[in-house]
Design a protein around this nucleic acid. Structure first.
Lengths: 264, 264
DNA sequence: GAGTGGTCTAGACCACTGT
DNA sequence: CAGTGGTCTAGACCACTCC
């Protein structure tokens, strides 16, 4: 026989599956559950902790515990990369008209709270290997924070890395005040004579750090996606590495693999 | 000022970052922490719960709490799809030699505990829309469970769906005893005259269900990846939908996007 | 058996949300 | 204000691991 808190959790889980409790419904108060099951309060709370970690309920201090509705996910596809590349050769005014974030979210710049912060950091082992530079080499680290003023919109934290000496060929690239840059990173690279050949996306997931919980408003129990975007130029050199952190419950990735025909 | 359990967690987190506590090290016993911080036991346990949910520590009943070492991840790339397609036209004996799972893990069939289970299920709204059939239409559901006899190897749970009437054109496809099928699903589809044009991968993450925790040995706090693989044939019909559940801390996806040249 | 984490009790008090 | 969840105390007893 399972332990008490698991039985309470299982009972509530069953009620949610059967439709006895529907998304948005309030669960019985902790004291009510305590009385129903004849257990102490911490046991009830342990059961609710479990359900919260499974993403099944939301707890609101002072209001109650509610069945969580499945989150609407925003899809991210690699078509954006070609779209960005095509835009690089457009005129300045055309590039200014809209950016990649607005394209994804359907929002205008006024809905978004965008912040850029630049640092120089020494390359750690991982980044050094990717860029093909010595460990400790000077990198330009660019941190982008995008917050949505309205709700229900995916946010992200981006840490982007360039080799400092490469970026410094255009001094304008070292100035955070120039962000958001019309035409994005691919246009920035274009100004220093770099053309991208391909982009490799590495997708992993992990529990959020306390900072990410704060910044991305992550509910307990949900992980974050880390998309490491590695941009490779036409000389086969890694020119940018970008780590994008996104909430795991609001993001979906879609990649299409075209297969060759048998009769070709 | 933060609450007590957060301060204890923050202190331990700091010790792990600074290298004061290294991966594999044992944390002080709960009673020791209780004495050090002059708090009650539940407070110490709450602090450790937090660190466990962040994936920073492993707790072993009766032994102790340890700093968790980062997990080695296994990379999954879409090249496997073309590889599978190319193998379909090989001879039977060549196809039998090795399967996709062995290719990914580097293991032989004797290291793997493979199980297949077939059911017929009515199409829910989601699947019906994908397949372009009415809700409730008869689908063949195939559940594959792969366990590794040795440790440290990624496992997965697969739920694959085919339209029943389509699969039934080759009665051998309805028999779980024929699994694992040499040449995989693409060869199975080939036997009923279907050639794949492309495969679309949809990647999401969510907290594991209790069953998945059990089956995949998921540590607390870790999410699972759900890879929904949608196979589309040369007539532009969805012919298979496959949901693959993988542990979030042991899996990495890599997708390459080739960009067209400006001067082309 | 000694040391460890896991479950549970029976309270107390505080903080937040709504009316 | 009443009702809710969040934190905390000070214990008890059990289950597991290792020697």
């Amino acid at each position: 026989m399972a332990v008490k808190y698991e039985r309470i959790a299982a009972d509530l889980r069953r009620k949610m599956q059967s439709g006895d409790l529907r998304p948005g419904d309030q669960l019985p108060a902790e004291q009510a559950l305590r009385a129903t099951w004849n257990v102490s309060l911490p046991v009830v709370r342990q059961a609710l902790d479990l359900l919260e970690s499974e993403g099944l309920v939301d707890r609101v201090h002072g209001r109650g515990t509610y069945v969580r509705a499945p989150r609407q996910r925003v899809r991210r596809t690699p078509e954006r990369y070609q779209w960005e590349k095509d835009r690089v050769l457009l005129s300045d005014s055309q590039r200014r008209r809209t950016g990649a974030t607005e394209r994804d979210t359907g929002l205008t710049m006024t809905d978004l709270d965008f912040r850029a912060e630049f640092h120089t950091v020494p390359a750690n082992e991982n980044l050094a290997k990717l860029f093909g530079v010595p460990v400790g080499a000077k990198l330009l680290q660019r941190i982008y924070t995008t917050r949505a003023n309205r709700e229900n919109i995916p946010l992200s934290l981006v840490h982007s890395y360039l080799v400092y000496d490469v970026a410094a060929e255009n001094q304008a690239l070292l100035e955070p005040g120039n962000e958001p840059w019309p035409g994005g990173t691919q246009h920035q690279l274009h100004t220093i004579g770099i053309e991208l050949d391909r982009i490799v996306d590495h997708i992993t997931a992990r529990p959020p750090t306390p900072e990410e919980i704060e910044a991305l408003d992550i509910p307990p129990g949900v992980s974050v996606f880390v998309l490491r975007k590695v941009s490779i130029d036409t000389r086969d050199c890694v020119v940018e590495v970008s780590d994008v952190v996104m909430p795991g419950d609001r993001t979906e990735f879609a990649y299409t693999t075209k297969l060759t025909r048998w009769n070709a």
